[in-house]
């Protein structure tokens, strides 16, 4: 799979591209659901980021760290709260792009979409730890765990995103 440079992800206000759509949908800006975009839970909702509600408490980061590692280290969190201005926060997490750069760049087909949840997941048995996916993601959402030698990314908790469940201010929701 390759990404046509003409279809590359661009800022959400300026494009009609697949990754742009995912960004918009996950931002809760547009109700349009692109084919294959992230669906979670039994109701088929989507993990929706609502930055206006985010107070920067980083409960989502902590939750993610504990769900996905035994140590609960914040550095291992797959979701990251970024401060973008005075008391303004945006929770950055994988957009599960329709035409994903990480999938395109992986030399061993270790990244594939879980059709049940819509999430692009790392098949750990196949990952050889070249870290190209981390370098290629245009949004900086991929992580590489140097100790395990594996790529790490949001898998939407197999359909039940824990970050959304624990967010105290409805800044992350499954809708």
């Amino acid at each position: 799979m390759s990404v046509n440079p003409a279809n590359r992800p661009t800022p959400p206000d300026a494009s009609q591209t697949s990754s742009g759509d995912a960004l918009r949908v996950l931002a809760g800006i547009s109700g349009r659901v692109p084919a294959g975009a992230a669906r979670t839970g039994s109701g088929g909702g989507m993990l929706t980021v609502i930055p206006r509600n985010c107070v920067g408490c980083r409960t989502c980061e902590l939750t993610c760290s504990f769900v996905h590692s035994t140590h609960g280290r914040l550095a291992r969190s797959r979701i990251k709260v970024r401060e973008v201005g005075e008391k303004r926060f945006v929770q950055m997490t994988c957009l599960q792009c329709v035409e994903a750069a990480c999938v395109a760049v992986c030399p061993v087909e270790a990244l594939a979409r879980n059709e049940a949840t819509g999430a692009i997941e790392v098949h750990e048995g196949r990952c050889v730890g070249c870290s190209l996916c981390e370098k290629a993601c245009p949004f900086g959402h991929m992580r590489f765990d140097p100790e395990a030698g594996l790529a790490v990314k949001c898998d939407l908790c197999k359909g039940e995103p824990m970050c959304a469940r624990f967010c105290p201010n409805k800044a992350l929701e499954v809708r």
Binding site: R24, A27, I29, K80, R82, V84, V90, M92, F139, G140
Partner: peptide, 12 residues
């Protein structure tokens, strides 16, 4: 990621 967050914020 910081750049994407900034672009994201401009829309929100």
């Amino acid at each position: 990621q910081a750049d994407a967050a900034g672009r994201f914020a401009n829309v929100v």
